[in-house]
Each structure stands twice: as structure tokens, then as C-alpha cells.
């Protein structure tokens, strides 16, 4: 069970994943082993997303980011609440870590080349036009914060119905729809400058 204050979930929808994570963090060897197998998708996610961004890194750089991401992921596991499956949660974490690493790398390079142009933290890779790229949406959702970002993710990334989301939160359907609408309005405001190119 997760604390049930406003905006928090009443009960985890992936309680077996949450239980596995807690047992692994408590040092239970079997759970650690099972968790390692479940999270083996993380290096593969990094390879997949890296290829999608046009493979800007050398193999050794990607390997270094993989190590950093895995260590950071283990450190972050205590805050996993079972709102999404382990793999979905790890996917979002991994994508954000990769983007942060790419942004840091770009800043370093830009700093060496052009010290005045170091501030855009969102990498433009395949499409240089202003647009709602997945990376920008992820960054916007992170800034939006819970519960609105979780509701939007459940709706569009996990394809859950509003009824399922309401059931998950233990809230009236209309409350969830209202939070979704307000969240979308705020997200729109956060991404406004990138929406002009759509």
C-alpha cells in the first residue's frame, strides 16, 4: 500500500513488481537475481534509444553512460512505487538519464567551441524544427509532476481508460478527468514554444 493522501495512489497496480523490488533492496539474493533479469532491458533500451538519436556516441561513451545509468537506477529503486511496471519505469528513467548525459556532453562541447551557446538542454537530433519530440514531452511531463503527469502517462503511454485510472487511484471518474484536463493545459503551457512548429 502506498500512502493515500491527495494525489497518491491507494494501492499499487504493480504490487508484485513493488514487492520484488523491496525484497531485492532488502538483500534477498533470489529477488536480486530476478530483478537483475527484469532490468536487463535497460542496456538494450540505451542501445535502442541511442540508435534512434542517430548514434552520436562512441561505443566507450555509451558503455560509460550505461554503467552510470545502471548505478543510478539501483540508487533510485527505493522510490519506485509500482505505479507502472518495472520495465516501463526503468524505460523512462533510462531515457531521461541518456538525454541528460547527451545534454551534458553537448554543453561541454558547446562550451569549448562557442561559450555563449550552452543553454539548450534539449538535444535536437533527427528533426531540427521546433516540434513536440518525445524527449521534450518527457521533459515537460517531468516538470509537470504527479499526479497529473502519471495520469497523462497512464492514459497515453499505457493506454489505460479513465475508468481504470480512477479505479487505480480510488478517486471518482470526474476527478480524474478534471486532473487530466488541467494537467494537459499546464503541459501545453510548458511546451508552448515547441508547439509553434507542429
Amino acid at each position: 500500500m502506498v500512502p493515500g493522501s491527495d494525489g497518491d495512489v491507494r494501492e499499487s497496480s504493480h504490487s508484485s513488481d513493488l514487492d520484488l523490488t523491496r525484497r531485492a533492496l532488502a538483500g534477498e539474493p533470489l529477488a536480486v537475481e530476478l530483478l537483475c533479469r527484469r532490468l536487463a532491458c535497460v542496456p538494450a533500451i540505451l542501445r535502442d534509444r541511442h540508435a534512434r538519436y542517430g548514434s552520436p556516441l562512441r561505443p566507450e561513451e555509451l558503455e560509460e553512460i550505461q554503467q552510470e545509468t545502471l548505478v543510478a537506477l539501483w540508487a533510485k529503486l527505493p522510490v519506485y512505487e509500482g505505479r507502472a511496471s518495472l520495465e516501463t519505469w526503468a524505460f523512462r528513467f533510462t531515457v531521461l538519464e541518456l538525454l541528460k548525459s547527451l545534454a551534458r556532453r553537448d554543453r561541454r562541447r558547446n562550451y569549448l567551441a562557442e561559450p555563449d551557446e550552452t543553454l539548450d538542454t534539449t538535444p535536437d537530433r533527427e528533426d531540427p524544427e521546433p516540434s513536440l519530440e518525445p524527449e521534450r514531452l518527457h521533459a515537460g511531463l517531468e516538470r509537470l509532476g504527479p499526479p497529473a503527469n502519471d495520469i497523462i502517462r497512464m492514459r497515453h503511454f499505457e493506454e489505460r481508460s479513465f475508468e481504470e485510472i480512477a479505479d487505480f487511484y480510488g478517486e471518482p471518474l470526474n476527478t480524474i478527468k478534471a486532473r487530466y484536463y488541467r494537467g494537459m493545459e499546464r503541459l501545453k503551457a510548458l511546451l508552448e514554444k515547441h508547439m509553434r512548429g507542429e
Binding site: 536480486v32 532491458c41 535497460v42 542496456p43 538494450a44 550505461q66 548505478v71
Partner: peptide, 23 residues
């Protein structure tokens, strides 16, 4: 992407995750 990554993950990836585990 997640479906592709799950299919692509191999024993080497399990070993990488295991090496990064705090214990």
C-alpha cells in the same frame, strides 16, 4: 522501443545489471 529492448536483452545485459547492484 520497450518491446524491442526486452527482446534484445541478453545474458551480457543481465551481467551488467548484476555488476551495478550495490550488494
Amino acid at each position: 522501443s520497450l518491446a524491442r529492448s526486452k527482446a534484445d536483452a541478453g545474458p551480457h545485459d543481465v551481467a551488467s545489471v548484476r555488476r551495478a547492484a550495490p550488494v
